[in-house]
Amino acid sequence: MASPIADLSYRSYDGPLNPPSARWWVIAKVHTLKAFRNRFYWLFVGLSGWYYLVILTVIFIMQMVSSNATDLASGAGVTGSSEIVRQIQFIDRFLWKNQFLHGFSFGQLTYLIIALLVGAGAVANDNRANALLVYLSKPCTKLDYVVGKFFGVWIPLVTAMAVPSLVFFLYGMMSYRQHGFALYAGAFPAVLGAMAMAAALHTSILLGISSLMKQGRIAGILYGALYMITNIFTVMILVFWLQAVPGSRRELGSSVVVDRNPFLQPAFYSSIDGLNIGMAKSLLNVDGGNAFGMPPDPLTVVPAPNGFAVFWIMSAICAFWLYIFWRRVRAVEVVN
């Protein structure tokens, strides 16, 4: 008979030890479903697609105007009207690849907010409630917990990013194939790749910060502040880029060349959303421009960075914060 002192009834389950083969998925699924059930999540997912909504509305209105102008011109038999109509064939000026980039870029603020909504309390709340003790007393390893939490934040985040782009992609394939949309069908998987990386970056930093805190709110504020302060830096660099160094613009034949400080381009991408946008530009192989259908101006867009460099920098940042998260996962205090 076992001694009562050495009673191991805490782990006395003697049935078949048959946990789910992917235990991390249990944790990830709980978080994912929790996010999907949150109405604010879907509100922000809707908001994150505002650029696509605006651009589709603009295209719709311009097509209406174009169609009316064509009818009027042909009805009145006005010669030379074809030039006017061509001028307002707005849609033909579209660089569809760039629209995916702009949809992703203009959604950055809402992605941050969704990340805070989904991930700020992911570990901090467990810290406060001592839930780690519960998790790790189950047949669930530290790795299961870390991976589960990661995907529990990453999946809702990447879903939030992808849904508006997917809707735009499907709509574009159905409505604008004849206007060149199908030529850029590869842009969708490319932007999905950028979204996967962006979501991983948000998730890793957020989980790392959250694991250091006991309140989701404080973790959210810290990450929000970190994001915004680095974002302000990027805005500052963008302003510098747009204003350029005085005297640096020079005529070179028929074109204008701007001499810029070589550090300016990498500096523009030295923030969380800078890295995300840089990765998207690299994968889409575009520099930007043509936002809202405006004629592209190469002098105002910051060229795409080196994709490999951005990838490795993002990976290193993810690894650093995930390491902090890993270090912070401690189930119980061992009392000697």
């Binding site: 603020l109 809402t110 941050l112 907010i113 805070l116 915004m228």
Partner: peptide
């Protein structure tokens, strides 16, 4: 806080 961020930066 999320809504305030949206206001302040959006």
């Amino acid at each position: 806080f999320l809504f305030c961020l949206l206001f302040a930066f959006g």
